[in-house]
Every structure is written in structure tokens, then in C-alpha cells.
Design a binder for these strands. Structure first.
Length: 113
DNA sequence: CATGTGACAAAAC
DNA sequence: TGTTTTGCCACAT
């Protein structure tokens, strides 16, 4: 049920739930939405997040912990600055200890929504 | 209305 | 084991 709701809307909801100092991957969100392989859509949704200032897109990185979307931010290094500001170590546009900081909605939200 | 693109990921070879 | 190809679905042109 509610499987055909707006995909983007769901992505935004999950993205807003990303806790401070944490990061997640597009695929994790996609899987949480039940899309599994629609990780591309998650990234695309982030692209539309320009109208959603409440979307911490800087906390969303690819599966490698790489700040794939840094180029879409205002400043080339803005995304990294934001993450470091939250205590997330970022080197070479990649999140350090990504696995430790990884926030999985499947585990954290655990079917809450 | 049809085609192409895209902030990824995983399966296939 | 690394590289290549497909999948995914919405939005832009």
C-alpha cells in the first residue's frame, strides 16, 4: 500500500530523519523505500532538493562514502565543510570511518515508517 | 508524444 | 578480480 506515492517525497522524509553527524547512502534510502535498485532516483531526488532547504543532502553520499554530489552544491567544498562542521571527517571528498557513521534507515527507523 | 539524462548500485562477464 | 552492462523511475528537453 502506498507503494505508488511520490518517490521523491519519501526520499525527502528519510533524508530529513538523518541524525546529526551521520551519513547514509543513496542505495540505503532506496532500499528503505523498497526500490532497491532505484538508487539513481534518490540522487535525482536530491537534485530536486534544491527546493527543499530542510534536506541535509550533504549527509547523503554514495556507497563508497564519496561525496558524489559535492559538485552540485553552491561551493565545490561546501558539502565537505558542512560534514566536517558536524564532526564528520572528510578526506579526498570521502567520508572517513564511513561505516561507523553510516546511518541505515532500515535499522534505525526499522519499519517505523 | 518519444528520447535522453542522472548526486547510484549491483549483477554479469 | 576488475571492468562492463543493466536496472530503476522520474524529470527535462
Amino acid at each position: 500500500m502506498a507503494a505508488d506515492q511520490h518517490f521523491f517525497e519519501r526520499v525527502y522524509e528519510v533524508a530529513k530523519k538523518i541524525p546529526y553527524g551521520r551519513v547514509t547512502s543513496y542505495g540505503a534510502i532506496a532500499r528503505y523505500l523498497g526500490a532497491g535498485r532505484s538508487a539513481r532516483m534518490v540522487g535525482y531526488a536530491m537534485n530536486a532538493s534544491h527546493s527543499m532547504p530542510e534536506i541535509p543532502a550533504h549527509r547523503v553520499v554514495n556507497r563508497k562514502g564519496l561525496l558524489s554530489g559535492r559538485h552540485h552544491f553552491a561551493g565545490t567544498n561546501l558539502m565537505q565543510q558542512l560534514l566536517e562542521s558536524e564532526g564528520v571527517e572528510v578526506q579526498e571528498h570521502q567520508v572517513v570511518h564511513f561505516e561507523s557513521l553510516f546511518w541505515d534507515p532500515l535499522s534505525e527507523l526499522q519499519g517505523d515508517r
